[in-house]
Design a binder for these strands. Structure first.
Length: 601
RNA sequence: GGGCGCGUAGCCUAGUCUGGAUAGGGCACCGGGUUCCUAACCCGGCGGUCGAGGGUUCAAAUCCCUCCGCGCCCGCCA
């Protein structure tokens, strides 16, 4: 993704903190400049975005500017604190050692925050429309069987990125790249093109129990023989040759009957599982389309003009990529096989050129195991003189429960459908434990959303580059840093408004009545949402939103615990307004993460 | 062997890009909290050589170097 330092940190007009930062920046910047301090403008802003020590909201460490002035930092801090004794929006400005601290005027911040939340509603935390269309390609799993949770990290991160970019105002197209011409696509078609009775016993007699979770789902049913078939081909050259021939036919556009339909049936099963997690796609891009429309040949033609391109003795075409900083053993890039067919990287190159033609910004969510492919793709883009590059969001594959790679045949793979089933069942148990006033339909609905939320959040709460081992207890955790924890806070807020019969507003308030430490803390956190979303959208670090979501829910729960609302002696209306604002902010955050905000649970 | 990434309490994790004031959370464990708004909660306690060593700096979890451990990759697979 784009470097987070690109451009000035964006503070949308909905960011309640933005004017405060700008004011400090201005006041301090002018004074430091006047004294002759040398500093780059980004530095001050970065300082202000870092967390400050309570009760300060914003803080500046003055060591650096003091040094450039040849002055002691604590003296500089004191001098500045004296000069800037008052600033609109702040109730206190003081020096603490080498730090210049600023405490926001709680009432003013509360006013600014509530006003923005109520004015923007579901749009609070988002941003103004941005002109640049973005393509986000994610998931793109081969249609050879159901999802196991190793790959689902891709879908969850990708879908969340789509949501965050959309929120930030970008027109986003999510794309699923369907491989229907590669070897794996050939294998699945090969096995199903034969009558089941004629399958070799190694395949027919080795039913990988993929059907256990959802015995009638087509991805499970149709994907069942794939692992055994793939293994069988390794030791049976004659069969492998049949698959090879099939590959060539696919490449040439001579699809056997039922090929596409088979992929679509498996895909629909896979998508049904993703849909339960709130994940969908705008476009499915079939890899074969780049063969059919001639764009693969076109790109091979462009590569052919390169001085680095060679035709090997056996007819294969390759590029000498030694100029592009690839690892030593990976600089010889084959772009066409000796039998004339294309390779994944060549087709992907054609795909990316088609993306660049439509989208100014192109993002690929990729497993870290595809990093070399990504580097190779970049090298080839350079080779044909294409200046644009995709931004890569990389994630580490989730490891099997005992460690190591998830393997279908090794029995270490955990199916998404199994995980979903277990999560929903557990959620149902939790709901029934504490509610007896809900209809069966409501219980099912809640259990589904809670289970899905737990799974999504368990993935999102960890930075994508961390290689995590799958653990049932963690994925199914409903307490602490979990999806249900977030949803629960939302449900509590919803309940308060419902009981006050104010679910639809209006929410009149006096900020002076929101003066307890818990109310102020909650407001400060609500006010952070816009800058968090902005950061996530420009950096691609969507898990910053997940981290924030927990902060917000936690702050709401503290407030809920300490401050009576419905039974408030005074300031009931104002507190209801705060509840409504917290609910709105949390709901918006949940939507970004793809967790269902639940009215009750 | 080479490339990339990761290493923070018993376990999991934020913070690392942009170096700053006592390193935030969660699980587990211990102790509290509900005649009252959903206890899927809150409060307190316990627990840290931020993998090791060196360097840069007024200041290092954060930047640089070396080493160790772990993960991923190094196909005319995708």
């Amino acid at each position: 993704m784009a470097d987070a330092t690109d451009g000035a940190p964006v503070a949308g007009p909905d960011d309640p903190w933005a004017p405060l930062r700008a004011r400090v920046l201005e006041e301090v910047g002018v004074r430091l400049e006047h004294r002759g301090a040398v500093l780059d403008p980004g530095w001050l802003l970065a300082q202000l975005e870092a967390p400050a020590q309570p009760p300060a909201d914003l803080a500046l460490a003055l060591h650096r500017p003091a040094k450039s002035l040849g002055q002691r930092p604590d003296e500089l801090a004191r001098a500045l604190a004296e000069e800037i004794s008052a600033l609109p929006g702040f109730e206190r400005i003081w020096a603490a050692g080498a730090y210049l601290n600023f405490a926001a005027d709680g009432a003013a911040l509360a006013e600014a925050t509530l006003a923005r939340v109520f004015a923007l509603g579901a749009g609070y935390g988002h941003g103004p429309a941005e002109p640049g269309a973005v393509s986000v390609e994610h998931t793109s799993a081969n249609t050879t069987g159901p999802f196991h949770i190793g790959r689902v990290r891709n879908a969850i991160i990708g879908d969340t990125l789509v949501r965050v970019l959309r929120a930030r105002g970008h027109p986003v197209t999510s794309q699923y790249y369907v491989d229907d011409v590669g070897r794996q696509a050939a294998i699945i078609t090969w096995i199903w093109s034969k009558p089941r009775a004629s399958w070799p016993p190694e395949i027919a007699g080795d039913p990988t129990e993929v059907g256990e979770a959802a015995p009638t789902k087509e991805d499970h049913v149709l994907g069942a023989p794939y692992p055994a078939a793939a293994a069988y081909l390794k030791s049976h050259p004659d069969a492998a040759e049949e698959v090879q021939e099939l590959s060539r036919q696919l490449e040439a556009g001579r699809e056997p009957a039922g090929h596409r339909a088979l992929a679509e049936r498996i895909l629909s099963g896979m998508l049904a599982s993703l849909a339960r997690l709130g994940i969908g796609f705008d476009e499915f891009v079939w890899e074969s389309s780049f063969l059919h429309d001639g764009s693969v040949e076109a790109v091979l033609g462009r590569l052919a003009k390169s001085p680095h391109r060679f035709v090997e003795e056996n007819g294969a075409e390759s590029i000498d990529g030694s100029a592009y900083g690839l690892p030593k053993d990976n600089q010889h890039i084959i772009v066409r096989r000796s039998d004339g067919t294309s390779l994944y990287v060549t087709r992907d190159l054609a795909f990316h050129l088609s993306k660049f033609a439509r989208f100014p910004r192109v993002v690929d969510v990729l497993g870290a195991d595809h990093l070399l492919h990504a580097r190779t793709l970049e090298a080839l883009l350079e080779e044909i003189g294409e200046p644009r590059r995709p931004e890569f969001v990389l994630y580490a594959y989730i490891q099997a429960p005992g460690g190591g790679k998830m393997s279908t045949r090794g029995g270490t793979a955990v199916w998404l459908d199994d995980l979903l089933g277990e999560a929903v069942e557990r959620a149902r148990g939790e709901v029934l434990k504490r509610r007896n006033d809900l209809s069966e339909a409501e219980v099912s609905e809640i259990a589904e959303k809670v289970g899905a939320g737990a799974i999504r959040y368990s993935i999102l709460r960890v930075a994508p580059e961390k290689a995590v081992q799958f653990r049932w207890e963690e994925a199914l955790s409903f307490e602490g840093k979990s999806g249900p924890f977030l949803q629960y806070a939302f449900a509590r807020a919803s309940s308060l408004l419902r009981k006050a019969e104010r679910a639809g507003g209006p929410y009149p308030y006096y900020v002076a009545e929101l003066s307890t430490e818990w109310e102020r803390a909650l407001l400060r956190t609500i006010a952070r949402l816009p800058s968090v979303v902005s950061y996530a959208a420009r950096s691609g670090h969507v898990h910053a939103v997940a981290t924030f979501a927990h902060d917000l829910a936690e702050e709401f729960n503290r407030f809920y615990n300490e401050v009576p609302v419905l039974k408030a002696e005074t300031g009931r209306e104002s507190r209801l307004a705060l509840v409504a604002a917290g609910r709105q902010a949390l709901g918006n955050t949940l939507e970004l993460l793809g967790l269902e905000p639940l009215e009750r649970m």
